[in-house]
């Protein structure tokens, strides 16, 4: 795999000279973005299927065998729908908002490693970059809510902004524990740090179990997914920040939400579940390429996301804030101290 890549790179360099670098980068970006978009499409189908199954239904099954062409049909439908811009809306910002939501969701993928050295950019401050990018997603939502010139949209935007800002702190502290354990902010190094003879037991979700839970739950809140979907809250504020959006502009919000979900799943697998490492470093398991393991772990996390949505009722807004500020932040602070103390003792095995 690596040899093949190097060979391709060599040929390209000989062929194009200095122009090769941008071409190579664009190729790498496409290799990541296109599968993400496809995954998003099929994640929507998976969501409807999984939730349907949990509600003893069978979900979409009319378009194509087992409903496999449903995302295509949805996409075409959204593409041909009219984009309605409400009167009194701020046109430029109204159109810019969906783009501003999607861009950070995709940009964060730049530092996500899929295998040893397989990342668009092997940045040293990768973890910080991820935090910064995920915190930018809120702008699209706020601007969408404000530019729509609608009460419900504005309420949804305020709710979501407050929620994202609050949960980001807990999320950040959970990540602080990870980088204390791994002593690096490079995502590739974080995965390497989890490699040990103990296999599965060497991953950070064992010593940092509370942080793993906090990160996962904050991740659900951060992506505005059920049970933390107060920003949409269809029973209270219709659809929140994207009430006024239709057609492709709505589709972009949709894409961003799911791309964020996949991103959170990838980050959780990388930081707590050993990324591309196999659960045990023994013969049949370590033959399988690392990419497969990463995707398998991501699928499990994504399934959890859907499972949560099928199980839990929506949090009330004040309870959501309470959970973020009064439970998660103290818990993470305590655990930062615990990990710090633990690392000074000989009982720290990671």
């Amino acid at each position: 795999m690596m040899e093949l890549l190097q060979a391709v790179q060599q040929i390209g360099q000989d062929l194009l000279g200095p122009a090769w670098l941008p071409v190579w980068t664009v190729a790498k970006i496409l290799v990541i973005v296109v599968p993400i978009m496809l995954t998003v499409a099929y994640l929507t189908l998976a969501e409807r299927k999984v939730i349907g199954f949990m509600q003893i239904r069978i979900g979409p099954n009319r378009v194509g065998p087992y409903g496999l062409l449903q995302p295509l049909a949805d996409g075409v439908k959204l593409l041909f729908k009219e984009i309605i811009i409400p009167t009194g809306a701020n046109k430029a910002l109204f159109v810019a908002a969906p783009v501003l939501t999607l861009v950070p969701a995709l940009a964060a993928w730049a530092v996500v490693p899929f295998d040893v050295g397989m990342a668009v950019s092997n940045a040293n401050a990768g973890l910080l970059y991820i935090l910064a990018m995920t915190s930018l997603g809120v702008y699209g939502i706020i601007i969408a809510g404000w530019a729509s010139n609608s009460k419900y949209a504005f309420l949804g935007a305020l709710r979501s902004a407050a929620q994202i800002v609050s949960y980001e702190i807990a999320m950040g502290f959970a990540l602080v524990c990870v980088l204390m354990a791994s002593q690096s902010m490079n995502l590739g190094d974080i995965v390497q740090g989890q490699q040990s003879k103990a296999g599965l037991f060497g991953w950070y979700f064992i010593p940092l179990f509370p942080m793993f839970l906090v990160y996962l739950i904050s991740g659900v809140a951060e992506t505005n997914r059920a049970p933390f979907d107060v920003a949409e809250g269809e029973s209270e504020i219709v659809a929140g920040f994207h009430v006024e959006y239709s057609g492709m502009t709505f589709a972009l919000f949709f894409l961003a939400e799911y791309a964020n979900m996949i991103l959170i799943a990838a980050l959780t697998s990388i930081m707590f579940l050993g990324g591309w490492l196999p659960p045990f470093d023994v013969a049949p398991l370590n033959m399988i390429p690392g990419l497969f393991w990463l995707l398998a772990k991501m699928s499990v996390i994504l399934f959890l996301f859907l499972w949560f949505r099928a199980t839990f009722p929506r949090y009330r807004y004040d309870q959501l804030m309470r959970l973020g500020w009064k439970v998660f932040i103290p818990l993470t602070l305590v655990w930062v101290a615990v990990v710090g103390a633990w690392m000074q003792t000989p009982f720290w095995l990671w």
Binding site: N124, Y139, I142
Partner: peptide
């Protein structure tokens, strides 16, 4: 100064300006 750059985005853009906009 990538640490400072990312922190600027993280803290000022990601948190302070959101509250400002609010």
């Amino acid at each position: 100064a990538e640490f400072l750059a990312v922190t600027l985005v993280l803290v000022y853009v990601g948190a302070v300006m959101v509250l400002f906009l609010f």
